[in-house]
Structures are given as structure tokens and as C-alpha cells.
Design a protein around this nucleic acid. Structure first.
Length: 448
RNA sequence: GCCCCGAUGGUGUAGCGGCCUAUCAUCUCGGCCUGUCGAGCCGAGGACACGGAUUCAAAUUCCGUUCGGGGCGCCA
């Protein structure tokens, strides 16, 4: 029989009075060693929290004492000993060890201190992400992210959606506009997909009716901000026989459940992040694009005219610049929909609301100045789709693989795409999108 | 792509022409300590991104390179 004494009996946080005076094994990383000479306190950290191992030279002998106190911090170890009640210990108990095995010794000095009293730059942290993520407040973000994803799946499956996956390697430009990463597909050029948009819409012509996909999206834009990534995770939803209002309602349910589940399941994480949350009420406030422009005009927001290059007051038809979004965010710091966007500011697949191609059935969901979601009712009439291609200056031929589905019975449909990272940022209360991705990909960072 | 800003021990910083043989904290190593949990005390170790220029003198000024930070546009 193989020796299994090194295997974990319980996580630190699972140990209680019933375990007192029993022999157990703790597994984790040495967070700190406080050596008082004849007595030492070794704090072992595992996923659940901290455990105190109290070593006594007198009872364990000077050799084992020396051995256990000289293991470098952040080494992965397994300690076996007896759990003893202890009023002086924070947890009310401590382990008196008799056996220690170093499973993975840490080199010194550490490239990044886990509990050091000095902060490290984001760059240093990301270069040593495995150490950075040993910090409970960094782990908390990813536990929250996981909850958000499972909450999303729960709601969508309850609402009769089917989870799907579409290709990330594509032959040609998808929506147009965004720059794509080029790659080699055997002997042909190919691209990494910027969004599942065209594929999920194609699914609407199949009879599957309601689909969603959680997957990566790639954008080759050289945007270098705290809210953009070149690889991000998108929750994409598309529903047939539905309009913009139907899909907004599903979105509200998803967001609401994400908040609820995080509050219910990640109490400790929120505490680690010093974050208090309240579940947003449905329906979320709706404000039209036109109302936003009027408000910005009242605030005398000036923008640079694309044609003349001169500064002028913002007007209907202009995109909302970052500065404008901040002005609105002061009045609406939480979640709100922006509806009735101009047709010209939305992609070709967004349904115009009228025959004049002025206002569309596209919407955004914002949290303050942050854009969280973009969605809308889609164009489903093939004739109108052709006209939209023309209006946007797109070549219909390039989209044949997609438009073909519209020629054989495409029902009305609507949907949206939500940035998982942005929702995680909002719920976790962190300000840099890189915080919520294990190994973020931005303009400069490709390793690790 | 454009505009600002920055680079000093493992980590985070101070210094911004000579007083620098470079500050402080953290860290690492050694010593003392039987109740530590931001331990304490004593001792030691470790750095001016790279290349050029100006100057009697450069961590400090200038140019270039590399790397990083922030903002704009665009977006999720």
C-alpha cells in the first residue's frame, strides 16, 4: 500500500471542535514562519483560509524543529499532526506537528511577495500570476467570475436556451469594422473570429429557437485601456420569434441572477474585496439615445467634428464619446439601458425601427460609463438585409454564407452579447479589466 | 494609430548636475527570544533599463532604443 499520510484530511476552514485531539494532515503553502527560538508559528494557507501550526522544540526535538522552521515561505508542504484547542490561536485551534513533507520548495527571494507590505505593479503581478493568485483577494475575483458564469448558464437553461459553440477560426471578415487577427489555416489565410454574431443568427433559421454561447472573442484593435482586451469572453444570446424587449428581459434576469448568486455564494469573496452589493431591480431604467444627446447638449459637451476637425456641440447622430458617458454616469452610476440608437451607429444586422432608417431597435446596457452589453432586434427580412449591406458599404457576396440562411425562412429574432470581464469588473468592483482575466492578452502582453 | 508620463536592489520607492561609497520600507541570510498573527531587537546582503552625447563632474541634462503606465478614438 502506498503512503497517503501526505494527503489532505480537511481544508483549514473545515476544521472545528469535533476534530480536536485528532490526527490530521494539512496541505498548503507556508505563508509565514514566526520563529521565537524554542517555539515557532507556521501559517499554512490553503484555498479555504489559514491554519496555524505551532512547533515546539521541546516536544518535537531540535532537529525537526530546525527543519520545519527553515522551509522557505510559499513552499508547498504537507504537515501531519494533532489538532489542539488553543485560546491564543485566532481560529481557536492549532496543529501540533510531528511530520512535515516539503512537496515543492520555493526559491528565494520570491519574484513577488504574497503577503508583503509593499504593492507590486500590475506588470510584475501578471508576470508572476501564479504567485499573485495566491492572494485571497485575487482568488476572490475568479470565484466570483465562476459564479457569474454558472448563474448565467442556470438562467438561460431554465429559460429553454441551448448551449452552443461556433467556430473561432473563420475565413473572412465577419461583421466588418473591427480588425481581425490573421492566421494560417493550412495553406489558406484565416482569421480569429471577433464575435459569434453571424453564426448565432444563422442558428435562428434552424428551429433551435434559443441559443447561447460562452466563448472567446478576438479583436485586433490596438486599444490600450483598462477596459479593453484583445481576447475576451463573450456571453452571446440569440432568440427566435422574439423582439428587442424580449431579449432585454432575458438579459435583466441574467444580470439579476449573477448578483443574487454572488451575494449568496461568495460572501467571503465580497468581504475580501471590501464590496457590498445589492441586487438590481427589474426592469432596469431605460433612457433613449436622443435623451442622452439632449442632456449632453445641455451640459455643452463639445466634440471634434470628423469632417472639419473643428470643435462643435454634440448633435443627434454622433457617437457618445467617453467624456459624454462620464457625464451621464454621474447621474446614472448604476445599470441602465440606452435604446433607440441611430441606425447609422449600429451594425448592419440591427433592425431599423421605422422606414426611414433613422432610429433602430438596438440597445446598449451600461453600468455608469461602462458599456456592458450590446444587443437588439435583428434584421430578418432578406430584402432589408440586402439594403442594410448597401447602406453600410459592405459587399453582399462576402456574407453569402450568412445571408443564405435568410432566403429560406428566417423568423424575427433578437439577442445580445455581454462581456464577461466587464460584468465581473462591475460586480467585483475592480477598475482594470486585466484583474479579472487569468492571463490577459493586450497589445503588449502575449506571455504568460 | 495619436497624445502625455515613466524606468533606481527580489518587491515598492526617495534622490532630479558635485554633499551618492544612493534613502526608506519590504525582502533574503545570520544571531537573540515559549504565544506570534503588520511580532520585536541586533548584525549583514542586494539597485541607478540599454546605447550614444553634453560637462571638469551625470542616477540627475539631451538624443535614440527597448520595456512599462495613463488618456483618446473604438468597443464587450
Amino acid at each position: 500500500m502506498s503512503d497517503t499520510t501526505w494527503k489532505r484530511t480537511k481544508y483549514a476552514a473545515e476544521i472545528d471542535e469535533d476534530d480536536y485531539n485528532t490526527e490530521m494532515t494539512l496541505c498548503g503553502w507556508i505563508q509565514s514562519t514566526k520563529n521565537l527560538g524554542k517555539m515557532a508559528f507556521i501559517h499554512i494557507r490553503d484555498r479555504s483560509g489559514l491554519a496555524q501550526v505551532t512547533a515546539l522544540s521541546k516536544t518535537m526535538g531540535p532537529e525537526l524543529f530546525k527543519e520545519i522552521t527553515s522551509i522557505p515561505r510559499e513552499s508547498a508542504i504537507s504537515v501531519r499532526g494533532v489538532i489542539k484547542q488553543s485560546p491564543q490561536a485566532r481560529a481557536g485551534w492549532e496543529m501540533i506537528p510531528y511530520y512535515v513533507k516539503v512537496m515543492g520548495e520555493a526559491k528565494t527571494p520570491l519574484p513577488l511577495g504574497v503577503v508583503d507590505k509593499v504593492d507590486a505593479d500590475m506588470d510584475t503581478r501578471l508576470d508572476n500570476r501564479f504567485l499573485d493568485l495566491r492572494k485571497p483577494e485575487k482568488q476572490a475575483i475568479f470565484k466570483i467570475r465562476s459564479t457569474i458564469l454558472s448563474a448565467t448558464r442556470d438562467v438561460l437553461l431554465e429559460e429553454d436556451f441551448l448551449e452552443t459553440h461556433t467556430p473561432k477560426i473563420v475565413a473572412a471578415a465577419t461583421e466588418g469594422g473591427t480588425a481581425l487577427f490573421k492566421m494560417e489555416y493550412f495553406d489558406r489565410p484565416a482569421y480569429l473570429n471577433q464575435s459569434p454574431q453571424l453564426f448565432k443568427q444563422t442558428m435562428m433559421a434552424t428551429g433551435l429557437d434559443r441559443v447561447f454561447e460562452i466563448g472567446p472573442a478576438f479583436r485586433a484593435e490596438e486599444h490600450d485601456t483598462v477596459r479593453h482586451l484583445n481576447e475576451y469572453t463573450s456571453i452571446d444570446v440569440e432568440m427566435a420569434w422574439s423582439d428587442d424587449e424580449d431579449t432585454m428581459e432575458i438579459l435583466e434576469k441574467v444580470i439579476q441572477r449573477a448578483y443574487t448568486d454572488v451575494i449568496n455564494n461568495n460572501f467571503m469573496c465580497l468581504e475580501a474585496l471590501k464590496r457590498t452589493l445589492t441586487v438590481p431591480e427589474r426592469p432596469f431604467p431605460r433612457i433613449t439615445y436622443g435623451e442622452i444627446i439632449e442632456r449632453l447638449q445641455e451640459k455643452k459637451l463639445k466634440i471634434r467634428d470628423e469632417g472639419s476637425g473643428k470643435m462643435r456641440t454634440i448633435q443627434w447622430g454622433d457617437d457618445i464619446p467617453t467624456e459624454g458617458a462620464r457625464i451621464i454616469a454621474k447621474e446614472r452610476p448604476s445599470l441602465y439601458f440606452i435604446t433607440e440608437w441611430p441606425v447609422d451607429l449600429k451594425p448592419f444586422y440591427i433592425q431599423p425601427k421605422d422606414g426611414e432608417f433613422r432610429v433602430s431597435k438596438g440597445f446598449d446596457l451600461n453600468y455608469g460609463e461602462k458599456e456592458l452589453v450590446s444587443g437588439g432586434q435583428r434584421v430578418h427580412d432578406p430584402k432589408l438585409l440586402k439594403e442594410m449591406f448597401k447602406r453600410k458599404g459592405l459587399n453582399e457576396e462576402d456574407f453569402h454564407f450568412y445571408s443564405k440562411a435568410f432566403d429560406y425562412g428566417m423568423p424575427p429574432h433578437a439577442g445580445w452579447g455581454l462581456g464577461v470581464e466587464r460584468l465581473t469588473m462591475i460586480i467585483s468592483g475592480v477598475s482594470n479589466v486585466r484583474e479579472v482575466v487569468l492571463f490577459p492578452r493586450d497589445k503588449h502582453r502575449l506571455v504568460p
